[in-house]
Nucleic acid binder design. Structure first.
Lengths: 184, 184, 184, 184
DNA sequence: GATGAATGAGACTTCATTCAT
DNA sequence: GATGAATGAAGTCTCATTCAT
């Protein structure tokens, strides 16, 4: 593992655990067993580390979106699949997701990425709903507004899952909840 | 308006806009047109200001909960009412809600208050669902899990509404969404 | 009791207990049940309070010195009396003595007063020794140097007594110690 | 000379000269020709600097005590030696002694160290007196009380020597004074 | 005389960033 | 590439003193 990756991995862990502000360069260097100076050989600034983390997350997210889009193109992607796949995506990128969710109030680039998440998921849900209605599987509801509702539910569940592990995990139940609301 | 209230009001505005860390005592003093020392005549520390804000919010929340509980006691409080009232509560305490939502990762007392919000809303929703099922208005679903789902939806909507004003407001639609899922 | 005296009394107590720096004007005002502003109606500054305390102590000390001098004039003041009377003086001015001893490293006026103490006691002891030698009661020692030694012993005992109450009180024994060393 | 030692040396000088409170981190940095931040790279806090100074002093004192104890074990350590050696110890650690003497009213760790000084010296003096009495060289006095008296004299002399250089140095005379009082 | 809110200088401390080695 | 000591700006907080009421 290269030094740059060690820094990134350590930073991810620290930021997700204690937040961006409390993850100081001094602590980071100590935990990564490198010197503070080395950080600046690989990154322009502390914020730059975050940018790299977010970039990687954006890439992963684009794969998820791409995969869903491919399914949608052949018209056989249900709401259920979108949600299940998204939860898998979150599971696989738990740490990075926590970082994005805890920094979008602090950092423009983080806010921008979050907006990308929201928009893409919304669009995909819209399309999925539209297909479902066409196929006669989904009730004839307002597509846009209901897509936004489902997206909100998805993000609410994600945050609850990541930040409030004491609250019972209802991701499965939530899928059922949506099915009952939307399926004929 | 007394100095203490000016400080509180200015702090609320600043913290909700730029976050707790960037709302420095120097900025706060400048914006409130007082000296930094004055802050400490009225509050023990910067965190103490936040505590006052959160305490006030907790009090407001307790009124909301109390009002809902009274309705529940006479058995005529629908899911719809709980949600509508909660959204009104958020509307009336917008700034404070933003502060709580942006600090629960930073501050224990904020996290504690958020937990109070989550738990109380969950319990009320459980009770409401139970009543609805008794009255035969609500489907025979797992009460606890579905209460958690609805609570998650509510908090997701709140955060979306407060932090992403560009996303269309679907709070009304969400109520409908829940009704479809839960009402017979 | 006038306000000025209340302030002085309270200040004495606080300073002797927690030291000059930790005795803040805020604490002083609170403990004296007056406002901070009132302090400055009666004293020019915080240091000025100390000056008043020291002035009072200086006056008391001058009475002690005067009394001893009168005895010396009629040639019948023993070393023992000087020490016993001094210990009585300290006992009667315990708090003020502690204040002087704890501030002479901080404040010129306090250092000056302490120098007055040292010098006067030294001179009196010299005179007493000289009389004793004349009368044939005291060994033929170097008067000046031995006066300084006894003065040092006296101040050492005073400080030990005031600051280290756990150390056994040996003031009586010390008098005996000096008698053995100096009396024929 | 390493930065840490420069800071320590400068701090010693400043604290002994102007006291702990007036030796501010800003002044210290300026005098040591470093930035204030550098202080905190080497010490956890301003108090921590003092702790290092006191620790070093404690170590030096333990050497002195150890050396005296060794002499006492072979029963040939006179009161005179204890005093002379102690004065040498003070001479060699003048600055640090001044710091301890000027901070024991302010800081627990300083007070603790001072208590160690008092207790150890007292115990050693007791033992020495006991040996002297056994050997028939010392008068049959109350060992404990007279040890305390001598200890008090020693500390009185130390303080006088360090804080009142204008007062004539009577350390030699004081040894003689004690000999006269205690030796047969 | 008395009040107490306000002040502002200055204390201690943190931390992202730089740079000589 | 790596180090880690040094920096200095900026943060939170304290406290003697002032002043309008």
């Amino acid at each position: 593992m290269k030094t740059k990756d060690i820094i990134l991995a350590t930073a991810k862990e620290m930021i997700s655990e204690v937040g961006f502000h409390k993850a100081t360069t001094a602590n980071l260097a100590k935990k990564a067993n490198i010197s503070e100076g080395t950080i600046y050989r690989h990154f322009e600034s502390k914020e730059d580390i975050l940018l790299h983390i977010l970039d990687a997350l954006e890439e992963q997210f684009s794969y998820y979106i791409e995969a869903i889009r491919k399914k949608l193109d052949v018209k056989d992607c249900s709401l259920e699949e979108i949600m299940t796949d998204y939860f898998s995506f979150v599971e696989a990128n738990e740490v990075d997701m926590k970082i994005m969710l805890s920094t979008y109030g602090l950092l423009d680039s983080s806010k921008r990425l979050m907006a990308v998440f929201l928009k893409n998921l919304e669009l995909i849900l819209e399309e999925s709903l539209r297909h479902g209605i066409e196929r006669g599987e989904i009730k004839d509801v307002d597509v846009e507004r209901n897509a936004t509702v489902v997206m909100t539910i998805i993000f609410g569940l994600t945050r609850m899952h990541l930040y409030w592990p004491d609250v019972r995990d209802v991701r499965e139940e939530a899928i059922e909840f949506c099915r009952r609301s939307l399926m004929k």
